[in-house]
Design a protein around this nucleic acid. Structure first.
Lengths: 224, 224
DNA sequence: TGTACATCAGTGAACGCGCGTTCACTGATGTAC
DNA sequence: TGTACATCAGTGAACGCGCGTTCACTGATGTAC
């Protein structure tokens, strides 16, 4: 399966330099010095190729985050969270087109097959594990742990609660979800250019902004 | 300038039903029963048309939010904020492709001209005005108002601070920015399908989720 | 060891499609004298 | 009132391009007897 790997490499390279919209089977064939029809021996269709790349991107982001997080002492919940957030942002900055592919506008007509679910959940899972450890260590805000919550919300967050493995109050899960959404939003805002004309992009300015976001997210969960 | 308006209408319709990627001058010409070359009498290029639509989308979102917010008593800062958030989300749900156009992945090769800056700032401006009123009424969290902040952050948020008109501490501005980013992230997450397989989409479930987000954003600023 | 056959990676031409953009033009309408 | 001219919205053909996908094929490699 050498060639399959080569195709994936070429597709990755093309994605990284040109972006998803101009990604075509023909372009990849060209890059490999093959006929476009030859590629069909390995890839079923354009959508199939897209799926490969999406899975690949999720895995790349997941692996990068996990690797970074693993380098921090288990007891250091704050450090683990901070490191994970930074790893996500760094990966996104290094791979903007990949980020756009997985977290940007959906491609009209493309429906993600089930194969993407597991890779897509690696980062949320990682954040979830950190949360669980924080809960276990009794480091989550008391007021949040005890808060009663709208039953509709309770049921809509049930799948997440079960995924965590231990009993975590819905209010905490919601807060964690907000953090994840905030992390995603902050990175996307920066990458998609929404900070243009609003926030300076001098050296370190955006890092400082993001670092404070991380600190605030920790505050919101109550980990201090 | 009747025809210019008709072209814009057709483009809007096409965008709404098919999405930005398949938007082409030829498709719009077809929709209008014109030759594709005739369109060039009114539109300079495809990028020009894209710019029209981007400005149009920002203005549509801005107008919808402003209209909703204006319907709330001035003293009711909480109501104004909640209403604005909901208006933004509702607009996005009603106009998903427009939302993707302005807040989704950037189109490679397209550079937004300066004309988009003012329309793009309508919602942030609205949120800023609410914040200013909250600060004036002394309803922002004390701890946040008094917090000292990294000087790099101070300078990177300077443009925002000046835009607000009155003196607002950097910590508060950063928090407000986080709220805006969170709002954007929450809406995009929902619209771009990231909640699939994670959160139920039964009646009211996502509304409940979002409503709690709004409440938490208020908490974070300290308005209660 | 040598022949006959099967496998299979890759070719090349073609299909029908849509795109942005240009350009010489038609034909109706409005204006000047 | 009638003629000559200018303006200008819209046409139609063409340019060169890229795309996804199919299909009959070549030619090298491997396998069986």
């Amino acid at each position: 399966m050498e060639i399959t790997a080569e195709i994936l490499t070429a597709a990755r390279r093309h994605l990284a330099s040109e972006g998803a919209p101009s990604l075509s089977l023909r372009a990849i064939a060209r890059e490999l010095g093959m006929t476009s029809s030859a590629v069909y021996r390995y890839v079923a269709s354009r959508d199939d190729l897209l799926t490969w790349l999406i899975v690949d991107a999720y895995n790349s982001l997941g692996a990068a985050s996990e690797l970074a997080e693993r380098g921090v002492e288990r007891e250091d919940v704050i450090g683990r969270f901070r490191t994970t957030c930074r790893a996500v942002r760094q990966w996104a900055i290094s791979n903007p087109h990949e980020w756009a592919l997985i977290y940007g506008s959906p491609v009209p007509g493309y429906v993600a097959p089930a194969d993407t679910i597991v890779p897509a959940s690696r980062v949320p899972q990682l954040l979830g594990a950190i949360l669980v450890d924080a809960v276990r260590a009794g480091r989550v805000r008391e007021s949040l742990m005890g808060e009663r919550v709208d039953p509709t919300l309770d049921s809509s967050l049930a799948p997440l609660r079960e995924a965590l493995g231990i009993a975590v109050p819905t209010a905490v899960i919601h807060q964690a979800l907000m953090v994840w959404v905030g992390l995603f939003g902050a990175v996307s805002f920066e990458l998609f250019g929404q900070f243009q004309n609003v926030i300076g992009d001098g050296p370190g300015e955006r890092d400082a902004l993001f670092d404070r976001c991380v600190r605030r997210w920790l505050d919101e969960i109550g980990i201090a």
